[in-house]
């Protein structure tokens, strides 16, 4: 394997996409490892593919961050067919003229880096459609 995802919920196949843990009882979706459902208390989860296109429901342009974090960047939330996803808006200038509330975006992959074994870590972001 020469590539690995930045996070477990990113699937790097021919069509990269995100996969959520979905509570089989109530349908609540999560991206982290679960102990139980915070909505209904259910303990069984299936996996659900999250649509790769969505609408930017909020964002901020971070100009001042912790040491080592490159700025500026756009952080936001994307409504992907009813599932909220956290991610950066990429491949567009990080300013309020190019990034707007309600804009349509789609998932894309973003290189993170390569480790000493030559394995490339790959993250994700959302770019304007």
């Amino acid at each position: 394997m020469s590539r690995m995802p930045l996070v477990d919920y990113l699937v790097l196949d021919d069509e990269p996409h995100l996969v959520a843990a979905e509570c089989t009882a109530c349908g609540a979706r999560y991206f982290d490892r679960r102990s139980a459902c915070a909505h209904c208390g259910g303990v069984e989860f299936g996996s659900a593919d999250v649509p790769t296109e969505g609408v930017l429901t909020t964002f901020t342009i971070v100009q001042f961050a912790a040491a080592g974090v490159e700025v500026p960047f756009v952080a936001g939330v994307v409504d992907c067919g009813g599932t909220s996803v956290r991610g950066n808006v990429v491949n567009t200038p990080p300013d309020p003229e190019h990034v707007t509330l309600g804009m349509r975006v789609r998932l894309t992959t973003v290189p993170v880096g390569t480790d000493s074994a030559g394995i490339e870590a790959v993250g994700y972001g959302f770019e304007p459609v």
């Binding site: 930045l6 991206f31 001042f64 961050a65 939330v77 880096g113 993250g123």
Partner: peptide, 17 residues
Amino acid sequence: GRYGAVAPLDGRVGTEI
């Protein structure tokens, strides 16, 4: 961690500030 992250997510997947 609970996302199985191979690198810090602050700045890569949104912001924590």
